[in-house]
Design a protein around this nucleic acid. Sequence first.
DNA 1: GAAAATTATGAAATAAAATTACATTTTTGG
DNA 2: CCAAAAATGTAATTTTATTTCATAATTTTC
Lengths: 287, 287
Amino acid sequence: MTPGATNLLGIIADALPTLNKSEKKVASVILADPEKATQSSIAVLAVAAGVSEPSVNRFCKKFNAKGFPDFKLKLAQSVVSGIRYVSQNVAAEDDVGSYTGKIFDSTITNLALVRDKLCLDLVDRVVDKLIQARRVYFFGLGASSAVAKDAEHKFFRFNLPVSFHEDVLMQRMLASAGTTGDVFFIISYTGRTRELVESATLARESGATVIGLTAPNSPLAKVCHLAIEVAVPENTDEYMPMTSRIVHLVVLDVLATGVTVRRGPEFQPYLKKIKDSLKSTRYATDD
Amino acid sequence: MTPGATNLLGIIADALPTLNKSEKKVASVILADPEKATQSSIAVLAVAAGVSEPSVNRFCKKFNAKGFPDFKLKLAQSVVSGIRYVSQNVAAEDDVGSYTGKIFDSTITNLALVRDKLCLDLVDRVVDKLIQARRVYFFGLGASSAVAKDAEHKFFRFNLPVSFHEDVLMQRMLASAGTTGDVFFIISYTGRTRELVESATLARESGATVIGLTAPNSPLAKVCHLAIEVAVPENTDEYMPMTSRIVHLVVLDVLATGVTVRRGPEFQPYLKKIKDSLKSTRYATDD
DNA sequence: GAAAATTATGAAATAAAATTACATTTTTGG
DNA sequence: CCAAAAATGTAATTTTATTTCATAATTTTC
């Protein structure tokens, strides 16, 4: 898992290559079924791994635990956080349970990955730009079009002057007409969609601020003033859906939250007003 | 903590009035500093509570633990989720790092929660319906509109006859005109949006199959033939964006994958064709 | 309101689990 | 191939948890 992972399972997975023979045995038994490991005694675990009890004990101390019980405690907490490190690709012979688990797990894993890697300073700067913007345009195509649409909805609720465009011609026209104070927020998983890169370039030339949510070192990232670069491993497998969309949505959640937090509490009444306006469209709750 | 809490700390807090003298002592010591309790031995905890060791042990067994170590394990897990739960909401004084972490963590936690609760049998049945459908309509409004749009995009890639509608009038017309073989897939976080519930009712009356992705026991869920009920805790806090969207998207990923897996490998060439058709719109990769 | 029954609690013994000290084996580098 | 270092295991020790049983507190019943 990610280098610098904060959770024990991730740390163990990271350290795997640096461990010696018996430690590797212990690690793989734990990684294979962390939950079971938390419920085993040191003796049981030692037998399962085919090593002696002191080896297990030494293993625990290596990972900054006071001893085996303390290690189990930390492991149990790590298990709770929901991250399982054994996600593989979906296979043709998978049953419902398998592919459901795999998809959830890989989504969760990727989120955890990005959480640990996201540049906070950059988030802060993007939030700055969004707050100062006279107007924000969200552009996306294909799968990212739904992401951009979601962003529009969310930021509108947070009372930012936003709009969303999935029409390539509209995107070009708006980009060309951009001025200082306009922010173009361009979302693309690959960062290689020609139309979007061109719109970004136009927007930049017209003096607007261009922000990208995209792949590291992609053509799009290079054109942007600020690029939030999200590296989600490519899907080697045709079955596996793109988790990048999800990660992008969560990053946008973070940005929206950043905007709201920065604005402070005097902004709260506005949010309530929007929420209340939706009430009449709903059936009352039972209780 | 809420009554009926699933987490150990909540359960203990709930049970407090029903406990006898020494059990109360133990409970209050644990509740006062759960984290410390997880790191204490039974002897230390007994002294801290002013009771004997067997009393502590009995206390643990009362809460469905095998013994003291097992209890500590569960407590440790409860502390993690509890702390997350308590500090989950974004506060006005949070800095970038805090709110970023909180949003990622709560998203991850909710995904893990739903992963473990999702009814696999239901997923299987919904996949069945989707495969057999003559036509699938995705309906959503507000935040769920972007989710429905994403679903259209994804299922279209998987060559299902799908369309997405966010126009209430279109939704009503299509629902009224539905026939056997049509599937109406209606997405709503609350399950209480009047327009969607009405469309669902119309669709059902016209003989089509109605599938919902929504809240448990909501009006919408009741109208549907099949309802995938996703319980994501309400955000009490105005700052926090809805994680339900994310969970819905992942559930739709699961369904799309189910459809593809069920169709088997002879369907693969089609997926490749779609993928290839997008190539010419992109800049070549560097490597 | 006192005796019996029930329940709660703790002391001590027992059992289980984890840790340590040290011996043996394996690996590494000359 | 040998010596030094590292890794691993055996067995003793220590720590920790659990059970048993006796005692104390509480409740119930007449």
